[in-house]
Design a binder for these strands. Structure first.
Lengths: 139, 139
DNA sequence: CTCAATATTTGATGTTGTCAACTATCGTCC
DNA sequence: GGACGATAGTTGACAACATCAAATATTGAG
């Protein structure tokens, strides 16, 4: 990959973008009385699609023990529920409560508002960007 | 912006990418015995370009008091130095030590290695992505 | 000189994250 | 069926991160 200038150039720019946005999540989260990690959890759990805690740990790429506390706090706020797993009695599946689903919708609505710089791209570049990113994410 | 589907679509994908990469920084950081926040600090301070603490807080979009502890830990490891500001005696400027500069170079080298998915894009898409992102970041 | 504004630090507090150790359950192998 | 290793989740100890409010020191304007 070292001998592949366009890939490295594109990736460097993505790094810059990622780091420049790293600070925005805490701000956005605070407005909803959430932490960044809690936002990430709500983002991952879709309404009506329970997620085992272990899988959540993998999605967050963090230790399973970390998920316990994270879920404790979200559950104590009534945003998610622990449900015993159907087949395997070791697992607990996480489900959004109605309140949680509403907050998630609000969260996603706020996250989805693109920063002005995206709107300043030409229509063609916006479509190209969308196409390339979707290819990048699915592979 | 609500009535601008391509911008929103592109931004949604960037969000996904951002969240999917959120977990990688801790891993990369740990390999160098750093925390994600410390990586971000080293990334921001370029060799030979001292940065006032206040400006660092702005770049990290965090509280100034947070920077104190962050800098304390990096300084106690000999990676950066506090220097009294030239003009204003209230400010302290942060400078990389030689050790810090070496670690920063290593950090950036590791961060710059693109994930395989980027390499799977066609050469044309890689160039397009690079072009669009550079336009996005400069505006 | 006085006073509001700014840069940094300190202390209190809550969250995130890791690791090691523990319990409960599952699956497999004999 | 019973022993045993693997897996899901929890707990406790601990360090780092992050915020706020309060304190200090310095600056710059009036």
């Amino acid at each position: 990959m070292k001998g592949n200038p366009p890939a490295c150039g594109a990736w460097d720019l993505l790094i810059q973008l990622l780091l420049s946005q790293r600070g925005q999540l805490p701000v956005l989260a605070a407005a909803l009385e959430l932490s960044p990690a809690q936002c990430h959890v709500l983002y991952i759990i879709e309404p009506g699609r329970p997620v085992p805690m272990k899988q959540l740990a993998v999605s967050l790429s963090c230790d399973a023990s970390n998920v316990t506390g994270l879920v404790d706090r979200l559950e104590s706020r009534g945003l998610i529920r622990r449900q015993p797993g159907a087949a395997d009695r070791r697992v607990k599946e996480l489900e959004l409560t109605p309140t949680g689903a509403r907050l998630r919708a609000e969260l996603i609505a706020r996250m989805s508002t693109p920063p002005p710089a995206v709107g300043r791209l030409s229509a063609r570049d916006q479509r190209e960007l969308e196409r390339i990113l979707s290819r990048l994410l699915q592979s």
